[in-house]
Design a protein around this nucleic acid. Structure first.
Length: 697
DNA sequence: CAAGATGTAATTTTT
DNA sequence: TTACATCTTG
């Protein structure tokens, strides 16, 4: 197999390895995906392994899809290999054994929003939203550790009410015939433990189990691996303890650190040659992460030259930070692909200023990982109709859609329906009908009629047609069409997109359930691998597994990175933040630029900030200060230029023109007329008027 | 019952 | 600054 020749000795050793459990410690950019995919192809081609007997598990769909396409490129036969995320593997197994678990085969999956609704209904009105969120976090955490309500939860929280609330939540969830993300792992473990014959059958089928990004495994996922791994099986996990960044989600570095203890006889192979970054970038990143104690340690090296220095720019505020980045982008060679640059930040909200500044300057950008399709209100509405169609015990779906679009069914009417609640909501509705006012009754009858019609169509229609029908019958299409006219959001487009998304799924309940599952578990509607000439705006977490020619890490300030939050467990959190920064830095191939602000707006007022302590952990000589003035267009001292006739842009008023300028009380004042027809007077220094050319509208 | 108005609170990271 | 929750009005 010629791919083997292209590997370095350690990579080859990892591919050829068999027998004992294998832990591959793969540094950033060391070609770990290549090793896994080649290993799969090697097993199929050279060792004549049955593709069906191989299971490869990842954490994100992004990674799973990437792996799938690379594997099939090497061997068409290997298309039969099962490559899934942990969650989707659990979902698959649970669906096939739903009869053993007392859950419907067409169960739907709760996302966090849905789970919060379930919890709210379960716990009653007496809790505030924030409290409920806290409890939900604890419940999720418990599930990360495979702990049920009856288990000792003191490691999760010592709150006395947690056990009760957790139990109520779980009952309510099960009564609704739904599973949450945690269930997908926890109940799979449960299934394999309680049904030894299922476990043995699975062990018999998947003789080879490969796990990517193992450093992000949580306790439940570890336990799942334990169940999958029998005496006849081969287990290989790949990971990098320095890139473990999902502690908040229950990921535990100890999982990878202690893998050799948990699986006796484990052999370790280190991949330390980095193929991605220049020496400078690598050295800086390595020096920073070396401050961590919780690591096995490896020494990354690269054959690439020293390369460019690492740029450091300190800007006045986040607005200047964004313009600085914009100037860098505008400086790039004509024809160069903006898609080769990524702008990274710690918190999602930091993207906002980049969006505004870039839009104004007509710099194309795309937000990666944020606007999740399935989490939009209008999409959730549509999905709720479909979920309810599959399972009329689904309380979350029912409450969402019974009166959306409005059918005149208000709170009091709903309470009457709830009083009749039995197993299914259809029944409860029918039972409550005669107690309702004429108006509410008509509305509810209409709702029931809609669902009945759709139910009749369910076995006959393919999901795409069914979705179309649902949008019409439910009135959602009309509802969002009229809304869209006034609000000009793309909501109508989004729900129509639902029709397209449903194509390719087989007809009937199973097909529909499969469609809903993929939407829930595969939220990546923006494909970072797709070539687009637009700069990438992305959180540090979301960059895992990605790489870019040029990376700008923004917000290099104490409090942002490392992120501060009260009550945090100092040392552990700090090491996690350091790993996150390490991940961010090692995404860069050729050029790494760090930016921070002297002050930043917090809740509308400016706060002074100090630079990130991580900057001090980098070798002195590698950092090269960049002067904002050189790259950013001069704005401050341009006061003298804002004469009458100057085109300006104001945040509130939009584009306009200066019509008069004069001095008064030591300040320069201007009057401006805007396109809206309004005029306004500003103190030039404070007004944040941006210059634009007049034909630039 | 629903849309508008007004007041108050708050920003990690994601399958 | 904005998001969201509660109150008020049509």
């Amino acid at each position: 197999m010629q791919e083997l020749q292209r590997l370095n000795p350690e990579q080859r050793r990892a591919v050829l390895h068999e027998g004992a459990p294998l832990l591959i410690l793969a540094g950033a950019g060391s070609g770990k995906t290549r090793v896994i995919t080649t290993k799969i192809a090697y097993l199929v081609i050279e060792k004549s392994a049955d593709p069906m007997s191989i299971l490869a598990v990842t954490f994100t769909n992004k990674a799973a899809n990437e792996m799938k396409s690379r594997v099939t490129a090497m061997s068409a036969e290997a298309a039969g290999v099962m490559i899934r995320t942990f969650h989707s593997f659990g979902a698959w197994l649970l669906r096939r054994h739903s009869h053993l678990l007392g859950i419907p085969a067409t169960y739907t999956i709760c996302d966090q929003d849905d789970a919060l609704v379930v919890l709210k209904n379960a716990a009653g009105e007496r809790y505030e939203k924030q409290e409920l969120r806290r409890y939900l976090r604890w419940i999720e955490r418990a599930k990360d550790y495979c702990l049920g309500p009856e288990d000792d939860l003191t490691d999760v929280s010592t709150d006395r009410r947690l056990t009760d609330i957790y139990r109520l939540y779980q009952q309510r969830l099960e009564a609704s015939g739904k599973l949450d993300f945690g269930d997908l792992i926890m109940r799979t473990v449960d299934l394999l433990r309680r049904q030894p014959e299922v476990r043995d059958r699975i062990r018999g089928r998947f003789r080879v189990v490969l796990v990517d990004e193992y450093q992000d495994a949580n306790a439940a996922q570890f336990l799942l691996l334990k169940e999958l791994y029998g005496p006849e099986n081969y287990l290989c996990v790949v990971g990098d303890e320095d890139q473990s960044i999902y502690r908040f989600r229950g990921a535990d570095v100890q999982n990878i650190l202690r893998f050799p203890e948990a699986f006796p006889g484990t052999e370790i192979i280190r991949l330390e040659e980095n193929y991605r970054s220049t020496q400078n970038i690598l050295e800086a990143a390595t020096k920073v992460v070396a401050n961590n104690r919780e690591r096995l340690g490896k020494s990354l090296w690269s054959k690439r030259g020293a390369g460019l220095s690492i740029g450091l720019a300190v800007l006045a505020d986040e607005r200047e930070e964004a313009s600085f980045c914009a100037a860098l982008l505008e400086d790039t060679a004509p024809g160069a692909d903006l898609g080769n640059t990524a702008i990274l930040y710690r918190n999602n909200y930091q993207s906002r200023i980049f969006e505004t500044v870039f839009s104004r300057l007509h710099i194309p950008f795309r937000l990666i990982g944020t606007l999740r399709f399935a989490e939009r209100e209008e999409v959730k509405d549509g999905l709720a109709y479909l979920a309810f169609l599959l399972n009329d015990r689904d309380e979350v779906a029912f409450l969402r859609i019974v009166n959306k679009p409005s059918r005149g069914i208000g709170r009091s009417s709903l309470e009457k329906v709830c009083a009749h609640r039995t197993a299914g909501w259809t029944e409860a509705c029918r039972a409550a009908l005669q107690e309702l006012s004429a108006r509410s009754r008509r509305g509810l009858e209409e709702f029931l009629a809609i669902m009945e019609q759709l139910s009749a169509e369910l076995p006959r229609l393919r999901p795409a047609e069914l979705v179309r029908k649902m949008l019409e019958l439910s009135g959602l299409h009309a509802y969002y069409a009229s809304k869209d006219r006034t609000e000009e959001t793309g909501r109508l487009q989004n729900i129509e997109e639902l029709v397209n998304a449903a194509r390719e799924y087989p007809r009937g309940a199973e097909g529909l359930a499969g469609f809903l599952e993929s939407l829930r578990l595969d939220s990546s509607d923006e494909d970072p691998y797709e070539r687009v000439n637009a700069v990438n705006l992305i959180t540090m977490h979301n960059t895992k597994g990605l790489e870019f020619d040029r990376v700008i890490v923004t917000g290099m300030e104490d409090g942002l990175i490392p992120h501060y939050r009260e009550g945090m467990e100092e040392e552990l959190e700090l090491e996690e933040e350091r790993r996150l920064f390490y991940v961010a830095m090692t995404r860069a191939r050729d050029r790494l630029i760090l930016t921070g602000c002297r002050r930043r707006q917090v809740f509308g007022t400016y706060k002074f900030r100090s630079l990130s302590r991580f900057l001090g952990e980098m070798p002195e000589g590698l950092l090269e200060p960049m002067t904002p003035g050189a790259a950013a267009p001069a704005e401050e001292e341009a006061g003298s230029e804002y004469g009458a006739g100057t085109g300006v842009y104001h945040d509130r008023y939009g584009p306009g023109m200066i019509i008069r300028k004069w001095q008064e009380g030591g300040h320069t004042l201007v009057d401006a007329r805007f396109e809206s027809g309004k005029t306004a007077r500003f103190v030039l220094r404070y007004a944040n008027l941006e210059r634009i050319s007049l034909d630039d509208r």
